[in-house]
Amino acid sequence: MTSLSAHHVGVTVRDLEEILPFYRDVLDLSVADRFRVGGEAFSDAVGVGDARGEFVHLEADGIRLELVEYDPAARATPAGGLNQPGVAHVGLDVPDLEAFANGLPDDVETLSEPRTTESGTSILFLRDPEGNLIEILES
């Protein structure tokens, strides 16, 4: 099995501009990166039709916290979608996403095959046996 390393912990929020000051100013986390991702590969990977996301990565003493606001928001998808506020996921990094995906047991639920987004990052979302979301990425 491919070795994993921690990449980020992600939280979906309703309004990134509204909540960012709390994390940045109240919790004193520094903004490490800010970017947008959309397109067919991203939509397929997250299982949300026509999805676009605005992301902020914050640094918290060696832990990267990812805040993401989705368009379309939760109203457009069934329960359990990544674009619902409050949904959390853990991001794990692998050196070879295709090899990792090919090594998964057949009974592991994935949201899609590995996809390379317009930001150049290859991602794969899967669910643990209790339905919790895990993002595997090759950055």
Rank of each mutant, 00 (worst) to 15 (best):
M1G: 15
M1P: 13
M1C: 11
T2H: 09
S3R: 15
S3N: 15
L4D: 12
A6N: 13
H7I: 04
H7P: 03
H8Y: 06
G10L: 01
V11H: 12
V11N: 11
V13C: 02
R14N: 13
L16C: 09
E17H: 12
L20G: 07
L20V: 11
L20D: 12
Y23F: 14
V26S: 10
L27Q: 11
D28N: 15
D28I: 04
S30V: 13
V31C: 11
V31P: 03
V31G: 13
D33L: 08
R34A: 15
V37Y: 01
E40T: 13
E40W: 05
F42C: 07
F42D: 11
F42G: 06
S43L: 04
D44P: 01
D44G: 02
A45P: 00
V46P: 02
G47M: 04
V48Q: 04
G49S: 09
G49E: 12
G49L: 03
A51P: 03
A51K: 01
G53R: 02
G53M: 00
F55Q: 01
F55Y: 09
H57R: 08
H57M: 09
A60N: 10
A60E: 06
D61I: 05
I63Q: 07
R64H: 12
L67H: 06
V68F: 04
V68C: 07
E69N: 09
E69P: 00
E69Q: 15
D71P: 01
R75W: 09
R75K: 12
T77W: 04
T77V: 12
T77H: 10
P78Q: 14
P78D: 15
P78L: 08
G80T: 07
G81V: 04
N83W: 00
Q84P: 03
P85E: 10
G86E: 11
G86W: 03
A88M: 14
H89S: 11
L92G: 03
D93N: 11
D93A: 11
D93M: 09
P95T: 15
P95K: 09
L97V: 07
L97Y: 01
E98S: 12
E98T: 15
F100D: 09
D106H: 07
E109C: 02
E109G: 06
L111H: 10
L111R: 01
L111E: 14
L111I: 08
P114G: 05
T116Y: 00
G120R: 01
G120W: 05
T121S: 14
T121E: 14
S122Q: 12
S122L: 00
I123Q: 12
L126W: 11
L126A: 12
R127M: 11
D128P: 00
D128F: 01
E130Y: 10
E130R: 14
N132A: 15
L133T: 08
E135R: 00
E138R: 00
